[in-house]
Amino acid sequence: MTKLGRLYSMFDSVRLPDDLPYTQVSSWELRFLYLVGRHTLSGEGRVVELGSGGGGSTYALALGLKESPVFDERTGRLHAYDFFRVGKGTFATEKFFTSGHRPAHDNSFLDDFRGRLEPFLPFLEIHAGDLWQTSDPDDTTPVEFLHVDIAKTARVFRCVCERFLTRLGPGSVVLHQDFAGPRLPWLHWSTGALLPYIEIAGPPIRSTLAFEVTRPIPEDVLKSVSEDVYTLDEKLALISAVQDRVDRDHTGGIPFKSVLELSKAYVAHYAGEHRRAWSLAKPLTSDEYLARTRADHFEQLRKAYEAQPGTASRLKRLVRGR
């Protein structure tokens, strides 16, 4: 069992403050972040959070670091990356503002974030803006911990790969917070590519998959992931390998085998193979969890399929004059 796996038995011992900053991360994930900071991190390598949002996850992790017997606040740093503003392409919500809504003529909630994280500012380093601009391409400092809650697009994920995954080594801990998101298949097939070099901690913690690097990751593997060189069929096979390792989340609520199957449909969708995407997605419409939580995903894939020239449904619409 990895050091991460031992944390599952400690969930009930965690008591976080009731007034944590607003976050879209579940209470289970917040407790896990606290436990990682409290029991596994030394601060000797970089501790990095990509996608800090309103600060709830940052607060939980920072609190764990502050209460750690080995983390030295004088030398250790928690690096928080985010746009820290609302607007197109940021995937942020106005609830990240202290008032709950955006003030007139101000898109930035950076000051709100600083105010909420005030107890930890002595060891918190904030990087505000586009990740491609705020991360250093020449920084090779080893990354001890990486919380990824920012890879909402393939463009951003490439930056994560090139500038952070390349700095992982044996003992590094990674948390993919969006692992229950079928529209982010790069998280899934890239994990499949890394399987020979990592150990998954256990069942996902709600939507977060946690793993520890156990062997050096070859440069050519990292390059293949960052440059997205895998074929459609190779990506589907890599996701299947993850399905062999991951079933439901630790509460039993999220059926990850089904989620990852829908992720395969999005691999085909993004490749322009809409017929194949719908053939993968259609059987999943009877899955209770997906039907309840991902109806918009099925609609998107179905519409793309029907808009493809030569499909029967498109021909029927043309005949009806629609």
Rank of each mutant, 00 (worst) to 15 (best):
S26W: 10
T191E: 00
S313A: 15
T134V: 15
N107M: 00
P119I: 09
G37M: 07
V36N: 01
V173Q: 05
T90P: 09
L175N: 04
L35V: 02
V174M: 05
T58V: 14
S190V: 09
L187V: 01
D111A: 15
T231L: 11
T166Y: 01
V148G: 01
T208Q: 08
L121S: 03
L131V: 10
G54H: 03
L315R: 13
E199Y: 06
L165A: 04
A271N: 07
F157A: 04
V36W: 04
T166N: 05
S99G: 15
E234I: 15
T293V: 13
R317L: 12
G181Q: 09
P69Q: 01
S9V: 12
R155V: 14
R163I: 02
Q24C: 14
V221Y: 08
S190W: 04
L260P: 08
Q133N: 10
P255Y: 09
A304I: 08
E49G: 01
A60S: 13
G55A: 11
W189Y: 11
E227R: 15
L121R: 14
I198T: 05
T2E: 00
F97I: 05
G272N: 05
V267E: 00
I217V: 15
V47L: 12
G169Y: 09
Q243A: 08
P17R: 08
S224Y: 10
F145Q: 01
E212S: 11
L262A: 05
V70P: 06
F113V: 03
L30Q: 11
V174N: 01
T293W: 13
R206L: 10
V47W: 06
K235Q: 05
S258R: 12
V267K: 02
Q300C: 11
R74W: 01
P21T: 03
G87S: 08
L7V: 04
H105V: 00
V221C: 12
S13L: 11
A291Y: 01
F32I: 02
F84G: 02
A180F: 06
W278G: 07
K257L: 05
L262W: 09
A291C: 03
V229F: 06
H176Q: 07
W28D: 04
A60P: 04
G129P: 10
W189C: 09
K3H: 07
Q243S: 07
E162K: 15
A295L: 14
E29A: 08
G169R: 13
V246A: 02
V48G: 02
F123W: 06
T134L: 06
E199W: 06
R215L: 13
